[in-house]
Simulated assay, not measured.
Amino acid sequence: MTSEHIQQTVRARVRENPSIMPRSLAEELGVSEAEIIRSLPENMRVEAPAEHFEAIWGEMCGWEKVTFIAVNPGIIVEVPCRLPKGRFGHGMFNLMDKDSPLGGHVFAHKVAQVWLVSKPFFGLESHSVQFFDAEGGILFSVYAGRDESRHVLDSVRVGFNSLRARYEAPAGGAQ
Rank of each mutant, 00 (worst) to 15 (best):
G89Y: 14
C81P: 05
G136T: 08
A50S: 10
E35C: 08
V106S: 07
P41F: 11
A144L: 09
Y167H: 07
L116E: 08
Q175L: 14
V71D: 12
A12S: 13
G74L: 15
L139Y: 06
V117A: 00
C61Q: 08
V79I: 15
L29V: 02
K65E: 11
A55T: 08
E33G: 00
M44G: 04
A70N: 10
S162M: 11
P170M: 15
E28S: 06
G137M: 10
I36N: 03
K65I: 05
D133F: 10
R38S: 07
F140K: 05
F140Q: 10
V142G: 02
A144Q: 12
A144W: 12
V46R: 06
G62K: 13
R15W: 05
D147L: 03
P18W: 06
R87W: 06
Y167I: 03
E59I: 12
Q8S: 12
R15A: 08
V106H: 02
P170F: 11
S149G: 13
S19P: 02
L163E: 01
C81T: 13
G103I: 10
R164K: 09
M92G: 10
V46H: 00
H90R: 11
S141W: 13
F53H: 03
N72T: 11
F107D: 11
S118K: 13
S126C: 01
S162N: 08
